[in-house]
Design a protein around this nucleic acid. Sequence first.
DNA 1: GTAGCTCTCTACCGATCGGTAGGGAGACCC
DNA 2: GGGTCTCCCTACCGATCGGTAGAGAGCTAC
Lengths: 213, 213
Amino acid sequence: MDVRTQILDVATRRFAAQGYGGTSLSAIADEVGIRKASLLYHFPSKDELHRSVLDQVLSRWNEVLPRLLAAGSADRFDALLHETVRFFSEDPDRARLILRETLDNPVTMRERLLVAVAPWLQVIAGYVRRGQESGEVRADADPEAYLLHVIHLVVGGLAISDTLGIVLSPDGASSDIQRLTRELERIAKVSLFTDEGIERMNGRRAAAHAGSH
Amino acid sequence: MDVRTQILDVATRRFAAQGYGGTSLSAIADEVGIRKASLLYHFPSKDELHRSVLDQVLSRWNEVLPRLLAAGSADRFDALLHETVRFFSEDPDRARLILRETLDNPVTMRERLLVAVAPWLQVIAGYVRRGQESGEVRADADPEAYLLHVIHLVVGGLAISDTLGIVLSPDGASSDIQRLTRELERIAKVSLFTDEGIERMNGRRAAAHAGSH
DNA sequence: GTAGCTCTCTACCGATCGGTAGGGAGACCC
DNA sequence: GGGTCTCCCTACCGATCGGTAGAGAGCTAC
């Protein structure tokens, strides 16, 4: 594997586990098997390395979006939530990085996140508007605030998944992940829906369940 | 104010904002207005100081419980959730400290949290059992896992409250806090309840709302 | 007075931090 | 062959880290 890629991999794990201040360049270099000076040849500074790690996670996350938009699935909100859970459960270090950065630099990270999810905002806004027209979604729902809420719900849950006793698997096939996904879907909708919307949702789920037999 | 208390106050803010590795003893001492050596007279090491900060938060949190159990309110689960939100919204640094510690030392922190909330576990277990008998709560609900989930839901939400755009107020009177409390109450129950239980909950809420007019 | 306790100070310690200078080995181009 | 580019190395830099030694100021007790 490329040395640069190896550095990024190790740095991702270290920054996620010990944070920026708790991770030293020598420790990363040691694990990769090179000297610290060699590491600084590939990344000119610790800040730059950290930024690259974060950029990689955010850009990979952003790659998920076009795939969803292109698919044009009937219920794109469900697909979006499902894919987001899958993305972060695939490697919970991604969630830990984002959560740590949110704690370390709240203002900057809020802006970065809003930029990163800007394309999704339109999808959500349309979803919310249609839901409000049909009475399923609350009148006071704010798409932007709601999107941030849901993202941090997923990120927060997966960042501390081991503490919560959630068993992960790389292909997302673990029963805990499937259960968590369903749970988060319900939670995400409950914070958005009216009481009537929730009952309609439950009705649809019951019908779908009956129909699948 | 007592110097030792001042140190604890400043350290709480710094550890919450910049984490353990990102906070230096000199920085804390400077803000308090003493030399680093004087700080180390009151707390023999950085580790000890950090432990004291965390201990203070957890013990203050634990003080909330007896008050609730003594009150013996009809729906103690609601009271518990409400008080937990109030406690962490009073000073979100408490939530940040716990969240950071959970990220830095997941195994240790899981155990500490379980010990800290052990008295609550009985209350929840009883609540869950009764709910299961009446069909409101899912059959597969695990009180311990559920309790950790709810706590981290509250802690996570309040730790990044500024990023989420939640306006806090020390007395918990801000409309955002009231809204968040209601939201978390619904979310907490949705992850525990059956579909039927949710509809009954909504029915009760509607009735209470109508009755209040 | 003076002994002793509490608290803060200056000065210093070794270790480690992020980062730099400069050289050497190998591959490639001409 | 020689020149150049890539990559890693050793050796070193000043700054800062957590922590220690020891003196001195202020207070209390006798």
